[in-house]
Design a protein around this nucleic acid. Sequence first.
DNA 1: CGTTGTGTTGATATTAATCAACAAGTGTGG
DNA 2: CCACACTTGTTGATTAATATCAACACAACG
Lengths: 239, 239
Amino acid sequence: MGIWRAARGIVVAREGAIDPCSSCLARPVSVCNVIPESDLARLAAAAVEAEVPAGRTFINEGEPADWFFNVTAGSAKLFKLLPDGRRQITGFAGIGHFLGLAVSDTYAFTAEAMEPLRYCRFSRTRLRALLDDYPLMEKRLLEVAANELVAAQEQMLLLGRKTARERLAWFLMDMSERIPAPDRLELPVSRQDIADYLGLTIETVSRTMTQLQDDEFIALEGCRQVLMRDRQALQDLAA
Amino acid sequence: MGIWRAARGIVVAREGAIDPCSSCLARPVSVCNVIPESDLARLAAAAVEAEVPAGRTFINEGEPADWFFNVTAGSAKLFKLLPDGRRQITGFAGIGHFLGLAVSDTYAFTAEAMEPLRYCRFSRTRLRALLDDYPLMEKRLLEVAANELVAAQEQMLLLGRKTARERLAWFLMDMSERIPAPDRLELPVSRQDIADYLGLTIETVSRTMTQLQDDEFIALEGCRQVLMRDRQALQDLAA
DNA sequence: CGTTGTGTTGATATTAATCAACAAGTGTGG
DNA sequence: CCACACTTGTTGATTAATATCAACACAACG
């Protein structure tokens, strides 16, 4: 339990319970033995590891997409910006997440560390060679990409068709499903981030949160601590 | 030009100009020689081909995800529904598109043919065997999935943060970029479908369309024929 | 203590949705 | 070829949801 399959910083998959402090944003995935122990050294040589302080971006939308990233510690928010500053957070990345997969000459989003973060990156050519040598790694990537696509479609339904109330309920359920004790939820993000993730304003998020509290679906114990009082009602709302 | 690399109905990639009648929804992709001619017969044996009449669904959200599809003719809309009937179209699929990739026991969306459609489908186990035998096919799938992910993020920005005007402008630009003569655009979808794709109502789509006409950005020649009069302005709006 | 950042609440404005009527195509049968 | 129904699209009036603008509360921090 809780053991990661890591190749000198390359976290390919992880298992079981989640470290609740640093990355409740990472979903658990089952371990697959993608890279033989004997090859770790060779792999490590191909990778560049680095640390990113909280608040710093390490992938910038529009810049040349030269690298492929794997998050090995911490977490990040991924977003797109409009020229006038409107922002849409498209997702969060925790330990084990892969970033910069797309075949495009520039990055399609910005990634900003939400807490001190470590990554391990490869040049695209190295990545290609890596995938040629480890077909299981490629399978894993395809699996990951396919799942993210499903999540993205879910998010489109939310952004295009759900009310503020439904969005919040969905968000709370989604967040709480990722942690061991899902009744007491510590929100890992600010109101602004929730708003930008759900396509709302901070004011609407705040108001809707108190509204859910008035309905006794949740109880707020400080603005980051949420007690889930009626999971069924929230689930029904989230639809 | 216009030659597809098809293995008895398996369209893996296509090249060059697009057949404007049946599938202006398919983006062109460069040809990659994924499957050797000699293996076509073996492949065809593993696949089930079928025809779907316009308006019929052939993938249903929530049903067991036993098959993996490849569209070989026609086009489809992909959508998710809420219990009360609200609908979000998450994308369109044309010739060469792959559907049902995700590792999940049920489909995450519904696919409905927009015109008579042909597909070629494999069981998941067959697919796995196929990918083991043709790593290039797997690479292609990863490439496709990664690109769709980028498109999905773009759509999230649109649904979460753009105005009706911006959404329409983006839609018109996006549609017109897929056809050979991008100044005269024949919309392949109804107002209802545009609305469900952009997270709006038909009324808002209709109003915004006439508004764009009043601004002389476009001219409507019948509700499906759009003359793009000021592509630059539309591009700026689409952001 | 002030200061700053973050969150909440209130008043008002704005956008898009809803409800409703009508117009324009499209297809069918006489 | 026309009358009719039927679907699809447009326009208008009104409402509802959320955004915007503004004030204030609260906590963290020097």
